[in-house]
Simulated scan of single mutants.
Amino acid sequence: MKIKIKPSIYQQIHQSLKNNGDTLKGSQLDLVRKQVGTLQFAAGAQDGIYLYHMGTDYAEDAVNQIVELIKKLSYHKTRWTIRKLENWLTDIRIITLADPLLTAIVERIDEFNSKGLYQLSDYLVTASKTTELVKCGIMLASLIELTLENELLQKIREVGYYDEFTLFSLITLEANNSSNQMCFEYAKSSLGWGKVHAITRLEVTNNETRDWIIQQGCLTGDLAMYLGRICAEKGQLYHYLQKEMITEAEFNGITAIFSCLLDEGPVLGISLLPEAEEQLALYLKHSQTHQASIDVLTKAYEWLKIQEDLEDKQVIMEFQLALKNLA
């Protein structure tokens, strides 16, 4: 009987990208290890929660132990040492110690075999069957100067399409000055945490990117609540609202942005938006020629009513009248 060997995480992502035309959007790929009796998280969710809600405290002893294991692996890779590294990273997710770990390695870089470090990074990215080991491999690659055509860097670009690895891939691509194009690619190809990380780190350099952020940036389900203010700033929301006319696609995207801004859920939104009252008034004006969102108009009306320093009280009455007409 022939034993079927489970493909590595990279192999699964590579094949899925090949089958789906360089995107994982809509794919059923599920690579996050599930444990019976524990909370189940979507790809990238656990790291996102750490970043936005819990901070990244770390144990210094864990950093020292992992540095020693990586140093040993840079000289001689054994299954036993890889398993020890995996055990450490299973107990302590790498997102919680990435910065101090990289700092500790850089401070002792002369103790490492540079060629072996590259080979270890490539092995962890390519051959690992657990997500934390893949992240470790991606992270180690940020310490290595790679050309844009480098095969390892190409693999890191590929795994970055999966939400669990997007943030780590972008950090390594930034270290090698090749991240912004992939930021945009990841943002367009994801509806999950990968989109949140990609838009957050995206540098807007042209109108195509700006238009996309306005029209599509916050159309991403529940996670859009993390992106409202970022999309308003990077997409230059105020500029679009000042247009005489906007398209239906622009209006729908702007509606989604305002919905996130007005929620003020996990991150602050409308309260930090410059000229918020005027921007809401401009949105109301555009809503007269488009399909208005009762939900957004209601949230805007309720928010405006509690603004004690509001100079133009007329805008409250205008929202109230618009809601009355829609009832």
Rank of each mutant, 00 (worst) to 15 (best):
Y10M: 07
L17V: 04
N19H: 02
D22A: 00
K25E: 11
G26E: 05
Q28E: 04
L31H: 10
V32G: 08
R33L: 08
L39Y: 05
F41K: 07
A42T: 09
G44F: 01
G44A: 06
A45V: 00
Q46R: 14
D47R: 15
G48F: 04
H53A: 13
A59G: 09
V63T: 10
V67D: 14
K71W: 00
H76Y: 14
L89Q: 08
I92W: 13
I94C: 13
T96V: 05
P100N: 04
P100I: 01
L102S: 10
V106Y: 11
F112S: 02
N113W: 12
S114E: 11
Y118G: 01
K129I: 11
T131R: 04
T131S: 04
L133W: 11
V134S: 07
G137I: 02
E149A: 09
E149P: 00
L153T: 05
Q154L: 11
K155T: 04
R157A: 01
G160P: 09
D163F: 02
E174H: 12
S189V: 00
L191C: 09
G194A: 06
G194H: 12
T205D: 14
N207C: 02
G228Q: 05
A232I: 10
L237K: 07
Y240A: 04
T247I: 07
E250A: 13
E250V: 15
I257P: 02
C260W: 04
L262W: 08
E264K: 06
L272F: 08
L272Y: 10
P274R: 09
H286K: 08
Q291H: 11
I294A: 13
D295N: 06
Y301K: 08
E302L: 08
E302Y: 01
L310Q: 12
L310Y: 05
E311V: 13
M317W: 00
F319C: 08
L321C: 03
